[in-house]
Design a protein around this nucleic acid. Structure first.
Lengths: 146, 146
DNA sequence: CTACCTGCAAACGGTTTGCATTGCC
DNA sequence: GGCAATGCAAACCGTTTGCAGGTAG
């Protein structure tokens, strides 16, 4: 995605297309896995202050451009919200992350709404799988299923 | 669950049945929703130091007695791990929490394993739904579906 | 031009750690 | 009695805030 298209996306969301925002959005488009604040800040180190990274991510999250994920690694990770709907599998040993699709959210959302008498609307969901990647299994790691 | 049964559970897990541990485990058995560290500490305020709450929760989590949840409320919540398998619906406005069952984890786990070539074992998953409870809907709140 | 943004430094607050004391087993 | 566990205080560190200067529109 070129600089101009990024600027348009940012302006469409109601913000000024500043250099830090362009760089951050560009970085997320280039990333194959969800990024932590520290990773984003490191990638943009020479051009963007880490406090600004916090602020932009927060802004983009509230605007719906960016989604926050908890992959049980202590701090959140962020990815673009406009990608095809997907979820992740995370290796609990080495942190490797892969995507998968097909969460059947409609069916499960319906179940959730049927069972929870106090709720009338579901707006989003989180779903992540945790396990062991093949190379960690080869290295002899094993984790009891819970 | 009486004091003696709690002590047995704790010893079976390999720990000493101290007063703080008995009180904390008892509190979780009595709680209908997942508890934050602050809530646990407040409930046991007169008898248990908050630092001890952190330590016990961490210990129990590692031992598999307690499960940690991210309900997008800034800090984690904890519940007993030996309850029937279930997930939660959380009101993004008021924080109300309800349970539901039937996540079809086997089917989705199979999908995840099939699609992620680098993974050989799934050990656990997280799944939470976010939405609006009926009373917040009545009060006029509305959130765009993402 | 001016309201929105950013950088820097300092504050914040949840969580962790060090260490002396306590109390299960 | 001995080692695990707790309490207290202090450190830690990711995140937030205040404010002065910069910049997009």
């Amino acid at each position: 995605m070129d600089r101009n298209a990024l600027a348009i996306r940012i302006r469409d969301a109601g913000f000024r297309a500043t250099k830090p925002r362009l760089l951050l959005l560009s970085h997320l488009y280039k990333s194959k896995s969800p990024q932590s604040i520290a990773e984003i800040a490191a990638a943009l180190k020479t051009s963007v202050n880490q406090v600004t990274v916090y602020r932009i991510v927060d802004t983009f999250k509230k605007a719906g451009l960016v989604r926050e994920l908890d992959l049980r690694q202590g701090r959140p990770r962020y990815e673009l919200a406009d990608l095809n709907h997907h979820h992740h599998v995370i290796c609990v040993k080495c942190g490797r992350i892969e995507k998968f699709t097909g969460c059947e959210s409609k069916r499960i959302t319906q179940k959730a709404l049927t069972q929870t008498k106090g709720f009338g609307q579901i707006t989003s969901h989180s779903l992540e799988f945790f396990g062991l990647c093949n190379s960690c299994i080869k290295r002899g790691h094993h984790i009891p299923v819970s």
